[in-house]
């Protein structure tokens, strides 16, 4: 009798374990093929469903001051966070923040962990294929910083001279493909490139302009002589591919916030202390 019960229990557990195995196996094997098709009706978060739920889940950065970070009081703050709270307020729901890092922003949306991404998400053609971007709320582009004593204000001043860049940045990409007459000195990290500029290894340094603004704030001898060169890149909220309802709502929201001057206020409270006086809100905020 006892023996029989034991066997039955064993069989049951065995079946349960194998079922779990098979199911998880399915998940991994069909991973590659299924990214395009969204089959679940529950995986959509329409504006109505968000309102009904009472919370909107927003993916944000936790370690990128001044866009999305956590201050010493333990509060999430930054340019993106101010926008996120405003969006939740206008939806009349509570925001719930999910901290992501750069390479799981897309997955967080696709696996329905969040409704909206507000994590300094730059619009690129590749990303457009997997998520839907709403109207942008910020722009960045390549800038060039140089000593105040010998400022570089035009790209023509760089011809035949050494320009310092970091490998893999948009700055390197732009100058390699569009300004082949500029000699590039390439470095591996931000610290190295700024040290190289201080040691006069090149006449100027090119990088994303927002980094440069923050850097020159503590370096009174340097100035961002060229604030923007090459194509502009846009930072926009992103929703899950096909979530028309939230996409349309977010587009309207960005337009209406823009009309109210919300982004100027956001800039002044969150970014200005980092970027200093040299930068105007219109260099970052989209009009």
């Amino acid at each position: 009798m006892k023996k029989f019960g034991f066997k039955k229990l064993g069989l049951f557990l065995g079946i349960a374990a194998s079922l779990a195995l098979v199911l998880s196996g399915c998940g991994s094997s069909s991973k590659s093929s299924s990214s395009a098709s969204s089959t679940k009706s529950t995986s959509q978060s329409t504006v109505q469903q968000i309102k009904k739920r009472g919370t909107i889940r927003i993916a944000v950065f936790g370690d990128l001051p001044p866009y999305g970070w956590v201050n010493k009081q333990g509060q999430r703050v930054g340019y993106d966070l101010t926008l996120a709270r405003q969006i939740a307020k206008d939806l009349k729901v509570k925001p719930k923040f999910v901290q992501v890092n750069a390479n799981n922003r897309v997955d967080a949306l696709n696996s329905n962990k969040v409704d909206l991404v507000l994590a300094n998400f730059t619009v690129t053609p590749e990303r457009k294929q997997v998520v839907d971007f709403a109207s942008p709320y910020m722009k960045v582009s390549v800038g060039v910083v140089s000593p105040k004593s010998q400022p570089i204000t035009k790209a023509s001043q760089l011809q035949g001279k050494n320009l310092i860049v970091t490998k893999g940045t948009t700055a390197e990409n732009y100058f390699t493909s569009k300004q082949p007459n500029v000699k590039l000195l390439k470095f591996d990290s931000k610290t190295q490139q700024f040290n190289a500029l201080k040691n006069n290894r090149g006449v100027a340094l090119a990088d994303d302009n927002s980094y440069l603004y923050a850097w020159v704030k503590d370096q009174p001898k340097y100035t961002v002589g060229i604030k923007s060169i090459g194509p502009k890149q846009y930072i926009a909220p992103a929703v899950k591919k096909g979530n028309k309802s939230l996409l349309n709502w977010t587009n309207k929201e960005v337009t209406s916030l823009n009309n109210k001057g919300f982004f100027d206020k956001d800039y002044n409270s969150q970014l200005k202390p980092y970027f200093g006086k040299e930068v105007k809100p219109s260099d970052i905020v989209i009009k």
Partner: peptide, 13 residues
Amino acid sequence: LFYYILPKQMGVN
């Protein structure tokens, strides 16, 4: 697998 992929496949979230 459990955090990103299973929810996508089976709606377990």
